[in-house]
């Protein structure tokens, strides 16, 4: 066993970390490309949020009407 194990260890490290980073960098690149493609060509259908907005507006109208009625009643 004349091989220098420490040098072997460093070789493993270089190869291993190289592969890990290569893998993740390609993955990051692919993730970015995928999100651009998907957002451009397959956007998620926008959720219909107008319903609740209308309701809120209705509520505001009702509140306004009630306040008006109360002030009118107090004044009268």
């Amino acid at each position: 066993m004349e091989t220098n194990l420490i040098i072997e260890g460093f070789k493993f490290m270089a190869l291993g970390m190289g592969t890990v980073f290569l893998f993740l960098i390609i993955l990051i690149f692919m993730m970015n490309v995928m999100s651009i493609v998907i957002q451009k060509f397959f956007p998620e259908p926008k959720q219909v949020a107008s319903g609740s907005e209308n309701k809120q507006q209705d509520n505001k109208k009702i509140i306004a009407a009630i306040t008006a009625a109360i002030t009118h009643h107090k004044q009268g």
């Binding site: 260890g9 490290m13 291993g16 970390m17 993955l27």
Partner: peptide, 27 residues
């Protein structure tokens, strides 16, 4: 936030650093 994947890669130094440590102990 894809670039945070690099952090997950860097932490693997723990693996290969210890590999060197273990063979150094043997050496």
């Amino acid at each position: 936030n894809p670039k945070t994947a690099l952090l997950g890669g860097a932490a693997q130094f723990g693996i290969f650093g210890t590999l060197v440590g273990a063979v150094a102990l043997t050496q």
